[in-house]
Write a protein that binds this DNA or RNA. Structure first.
Length: 577
DNA sequence: GCCGTTTTCGGCCCGACTGTTTTCAGTCG
């Protein structure tokens, strides 16, 4: 009975919703929601944990009762408790909860008093004036709900971080010139490098906040100003995204940025822990509950330090083990952009890249890289002008010539070789043997069944010349679901054969993603961050890959393109000898 | 329902906003 963590998590999220409608104990509801979230973010599939006899109670937020329910669910594919709960409500009522402003109490009243169980029915009832006539509801409430329904319908998906961050750069560019502006930074999911963001929260401090707010609302990309005050403003930028800027007091900047960075789970866990120790944490500071004395913090570092914690980088503030680890001084030094010594996934105009080889090399030098692998597509990928064997050999010569004139950077010959649908490789072994780096990747027949796809990729990893598996799940954010593949088997094979797994930094890919990275590392795999650059500027996508790697708690020892070239070469050679 | 440097019971993050109100419930982040 196959059931993935995401599906298990959905059941417990649903249970949480239904218990809310029922008016159950709020703490019980939160317990289900916490467990659902923990399951959703678990690096390891629960199915595997059970098969290996691991105790599910080790998952934070999962106790006796929920552990038993998970086991039931996986054994039978059903959960009686859940089925019974669902039968108590008209189907569709939970969808009302998705409307901002409609909570469980309102949803239940709408159902019980007006017989509403869908968003469409609710919309009709508002237009008929039925909703406004309910006790303790009025015109304004009804209107607001209607507005929220309409907003929900036209609301775009969350946008990829790859679109959000450049926008932030542009906004800050326009504000930095103002005298007295400091600490401009994104907060929220953007600062934590989540793969997509719903809106953009920006913060900063200034001697004259009003002036900054004024300038913000007049930036060229601002399409509409939703609201504007002395210290904050909300705008809609071209494309429909909401951006909030909040200018805060210098002396409370630390606790404010900490609070607005989240995650919510991290903040809750932090507050619970220190509440037990007699401290009240909020965005305004830290209050000693015994004396009532409040302290403020100008920096986030000081805030964490006051709690006796090591600084916790935003990317790992997920409300998991990071707080315990920080208390033990056990937060590792996570990889940073300046640690990166080269890129192993780069295209040129030999295949579908936009720029000549020389330009890509100069761009890599300009970024201080010590090495660069040229990995154009292989022959089978016609749509990308994949290189024939002759062209591969010609490129090898070209690169060797180029290397003679270069002192500060070394160019590696390479290929992004297609793993064909039948599992065969797109270039013969004798050609692969002549290349410094072989990046293997799937580009076709992505609908294959899991077993076939897994066999296909494992087969490629068996080849002694293959060094790297690129974008292992092939997902495209918001466009294409990941392929069906047994990643656990792929990671184990990569470890066994000494292959590196790519973290593809292309913002539409971000593949592997955070929980995959965590699991790969647990299994002892080595990773690398590749940009998949098709132009010189795209080498800068590296920061997205680094952000992602940091979400996966990666240190330089985990990421091979932070290593000196000799060490990388030795790693790749292990299998070939 | 979960959990423990208050450990098998009694707690469970914190503050703000909104609307319909004579003191607050519901919702949100």
């Amino acid at each position: 009975m196959g059931m993935r963590n995401t599906a298990i998590a959905k059941v417990f999220y649903d249970i949480g919703d239904l218990l809310e409608l029922k008016g159950e104990n709020p703490f019980k509801i939160r317990a289900y929601q916490r467990a659902a979230r923990a399951i959703e973010h678990l690096p390891k599939e629960i199915e595997i944990m059970l098969r290996e006899g691991q105790d599910l109670k080790a998952i934070p937020g999962v106790g006796e009762a929920i552990a038993r329910k998970i086991a039931d669910l996986l054994a039978t594919g059903k959960l009686e408790y859940y089925e019974k709960l669902r039968a108590e409500f008209p189907p569709g009522i939970a969808t009302l909860l998705e409307i901002p402003g409609v909570g469980p109490k309102t949803a239940m009243r709408l159902t019980q008093e007006l017989g509403i169980s869908s968003v469409e029915e609710l919309e009709r009832a508002i237009r008929d004036g039925q909703v406004a006539s309910l006790f303790r509801m009025g015109e304004k409430t009804a209107e607001n709900i209607l507005y929220q329904i309409e907003a929900l319908r036209r609301k775009d998906q969350r946008i990829p971080i790859g679109e959000a961050l450049p926008l932030v750069d542009e906004i800050f560019e326009g504000l930095r010139a103002i005298p007295g502006v400091k600490n401009l930074t994104p907060a929220g999911s953007l600062r934590r490098f989540q793969e997509t963001v719903g809106d953009i929260d920006l913060m900063g401090t200034a001697d004259n906040p009003r002036q900054v707010i004024e300038a913000f609302t007049r930036l060229p990309m601002v399409a509409q100003v939703l609201g504007q005050g002395e210290t904050r403003a909300s705008v809609i930028v071209a494309g429909g995204l909401q951006v909030d800027l909040r200018m805060v007091e210098h002396e409370r900047y630390g606790s404010l940025i900490q609070y607005f960075t989240g995650s919510k789970q991290h903040n809750i866990a932090l507050r619970e822990r220190f509440h037990r120790q007699g401290l009240k944490l909020s965005e305004y500071g830290i209050t000693d509950l015994a004396t009532g004395k409040e302290e403020t913090f100008a920096t986030e570092e000081a805030f964490y330090q006051r709690l006796g914690l090591q600084y916790i980088p935003p990317e790992i503030r997920e409300g998991g083990e990071e707080i315990d680890r920080a208390a033990r001084g056990d937060i590792p030094a996570l990889v940073e952009v300046p640690d990166i010594k080269g890129d192993f996934h780069v295209h040129t105009d030999w295949s579908d890249g936009r720029s000549p080889l020389e330009e890509m090399v100069q761009a890599a030098r300009a970024r201080g890289y010590r090495y660069l692998a040229i990995t154009d597509h292989s022959v089978g990928l016609r749509i990308a002008q994949g290189l024939s064997v002759e062209r591969v050999l010609a490129q090898i010569e070209e690169v060797q010539k180029l290397n003679h004139g270069l002192k500060d950077i070394y160019i590696l010959t390479g290929t992004e070789m297609d793993i064909r649908a039948d599992g065969s490789l797109d270039l013969p072994d004798e050609v692969l043997a002549r290349l410094d780096v072989v990046v293997a990747a799937v580009h076709s027949s992505m609908g294959q069944e899991q077993e076939k796809m897994t066999r296909r990729v494992l087969g490629a990893l068996e080849n002694p010349h293959v060094d790297i598996l690129a974008h292992p799940t092939c997902r495209l954010l918001g466009e294409r679901e990941p392929v069906h593949i047994d990643l656990e088997a792929v990671f184990k094979k990569a470890v066994e054969k000494g292959k590196a797994l790519e973290i593809n930094a292309m913002p539409t890919r971000l593949d592997l993603k955070d929980i995959h990275i965590l699991r790969a590392r647990e299994l002892g795999a080595k990773l690398l961050i590749g940009t998949d650059a098709h132009s010189p500027e795209q080498l800068d996508l590296m920061r997205f890959g680094v952000g992602l790697a940091r979400r996966g708690w990666c240190q330089t020892r985990d990421i091979i393109n932070t290593w000196p070239l000799e060490k990388v070469k030795a790693f790749f050679k292990r299998e070939e000898e």
